[in-house]
Design a protein around this nucleic acid. Structure first.
Lengths: 352, 352
DNA sequence: GGCTCCCCCTAAACCGCTTTGAAAAACTAG
DNA sequence: CTAGTTTTTCAAAGCGGTTTAGGGGGAGCC
């Protein structure tokens, strides 16, 4: 392995100058810089990361801990985040160190990594409404950025989130605008912030557009196809006057289940029942291809990776927190799975 | 952060002694050692990993690169490996640094990590028959262990694999013993070693037990439910005399598809068609619950993680290669998805 | 008492890089 | 030509550990 010292000797320069030249410091002449850069290249010099890190006090490692999962199954969205994150961090010359917690203690990997001084910061995914990992990192003063957020009304940490209130709001609004008066929202788990926000948005829309009364029920659960199927089936089995004509889903996977249930009931989409979902574009489900094409609020998870990485870097550079709390809007894309309520003739006048 | 120097000053000892005491070197008195250990604990001393690594020349990091996937979808088995590996490596005080390649170049992440001197070794998963990653690492002299192996008849690297020849052989043998004379093998992709080996085993069994002629076709493809469904459907649509009564599958996911196809054809399992699969126990599919219970060759992926990690550690310690090439047997578990051939009366005499 | 031996410990070098403080070199101005 | 700046370079001190070479002092032996 070729070191800075070797280069300096070869060039009759001091290691200090070589280091400066390679790291773009101004106090080195252009000629010397070129010379150094050239020899470094020719000698195929690679700075020893460890030495660099020891000297600078930065490890260049970012901790990523697999979020705890209720059953031991895998959250496919995490995979998406992980790969996207890795790619972006690589560009920033940071590395991802991955840990899977032993199930009992979700904080332990963080404690361990912090104790070892092995990482400069963390990315926290799938935060709970009240999350012990966030609590720990905050109290320990370790830099971290959250994908999503916890329940605190004004978080004092860096995060990247989408406007989940709007997701719920827009879904409900669209359905209401189409004349639907009996809605059902198949939301995510009850203990995560995004579900909470979407529910708030959903219910706010019910209130805002309730010139004629609109009814909506919200159901919570793990976002699986089965959950979507079962809950939609249950909703559609209600007596006629409580049966939803518009179903909002917190994920495309849920929507897949819901649509299956609708069909099993002998109903048509969107003639009898409209379906809208939030789509964060997990590749598995995208490939599925919905028929009819699904109306969604759209915000690809992968798109979150770049900001997440960049926010973290900002954090490490000591940037102001204000710029490191990002909330993005999801895009409403209307396709064929939503249409006017089958009962809309009765209420059209009131809506318009 | 408390350092060795602080401890040494507090105790009026030299840093050298403290270092020795903490690392269990013999040339330090029992009394001193206890003293040092005790103060270290009280002061909550954590050795700086970077400094340690710089001094010892070991980074304590293991590289894990997401294997390239033909489409961009996720191989759920990789997740299993990743978590299991992380847990075991944590016990060995090693950390996993994760990289996702940009799609064009699967070797690049390795080159990068090696260049940065960021890792002590690699775990390579999903090897191809001829694999550029293995090629690179070998030529570069970096320690690595392969989960599976490539096509070389006598690999000169460390690996952990299951006896895939036997997997194919046992599956065919079981079906043949049950009187089946027309078999079909829905194997994995053509360009991976395990498929190749299983096919070899499968075909060997056909030859070994061919006192009465046995026919078997082997199909290759990506191991998805759809693949299983399509291929099984195709096989079952053959003219009567070429229609398989026993289907072997390279994974439980394939089997799920195959079983669906069998049912769609109005056939019964195992009365009309027997199904056997290889089961590496990915949690997603396990949960699925087969009906009838699936006969399998069994070897959980998770079980591979511990040996993989241990082999790698052996490698880093300079152990002899011979002990670091491990092939394990899969276990044959006969359940309800296999039964005598519906045509067995005709051939029973010849088999017994 | 003098000698060796062993045990326990220390001083100092080292890992490869960064960074501070100061000196040398190269300009600029008077 | 000298004094004063500015630019460029260097020596040396870290970063926090490990490790080598060596030293003090008590025990054992003659």
């Amino acid at each position: 392995m070729v070191t800075i010292k070797q280069i300096s000797e070869k060039l009759h320069l001091s290691p200090a100058t070589v280091s400066r030249a390679l790291n773009g410091y101004p106090e080195v002449s252009a000629r010397t810089r070129l010379l150094v850069e050239d020899t470094a290249r020719r000698l195929n010099y690679r700075p020893n990361q460890l030495a660099k890190k020891l000297a600078t006090g930065r490890s260049g490692m970012i901790g990523l801990v697999l979020p705890p999962s209720p059953d031991q199954s895998f959250d496919p969205t995490f995979y998406d985040v992980m790969t996207g994150l890795s790619r972006r961090l690589t560009e920033l010359d940071l590395d991802l160190v991955f840990h899977a917690p032993v199930l009992e203690d979700e904080v332990e990997p963080f404690r361990r990594l912090v104790g070892k001084q092995a990482v400069d910061g963390f990315i926290v995914t799938n935060p709970k409404l009240s999350d012990p990992r966030i609590e720990f990192l905050r109290s320990d003063g370790v830099p971290f950025v959250v994908h999503g957020r916890d329940a605190s009304p004004a978080p004092d940490y860096a995060f990247f989130d989408i406007d989940n209130f709007r997701v719920g709001y827009d879904a409900a609004k669209l359905l209401i605008d189409l004349g639907h008066r009996q809605l059902c929202f198949l939301n995510g788990p009850e203990d995560v912030h995004f579900s909470f926000e979407r529910r708030r948005g959903f219910e706010q829309a019910l209130r805002d557009f309730g010139s004629s009364p609109v009814f909506g029920t919200v159901r919570h659960g793990r976002m699986t196809e089965t959950y979507g199927y079962m809950q939609a089936l249950a909703a559609l089995s209600e007596p006629e006057n409580a049966r939803p004509t518009g179903i909002a889903c917190s994920s495309t996977i849920i929507a897949a289940g819901a649509m299956r249930a609708i069909r099993d009931k002998g109903l048509n989409i969107p003639a009898d029942v409209s379906v809208i979902a939030h789509d964060d574009a997990p590749p598995q489900v995208h490939a599925m291809g919905f028929d009819p094409a699904l109306t969604v609020t759209f915000s690809p998870l992968r798109d979150a990776c770049r900001p997440l990485a960049d926010i973290l870097q900002g954090l490490l550079n000591g940037d102001n927190l204000a710029g490191l709390q990002v909330t993005e809007e999801a895009e409403l894309i209307v396709r064929q799975s939503t249409g006017p309520s089958p009962l809309s003739k009765q209420v059209q006048g009131q809506t318009a």
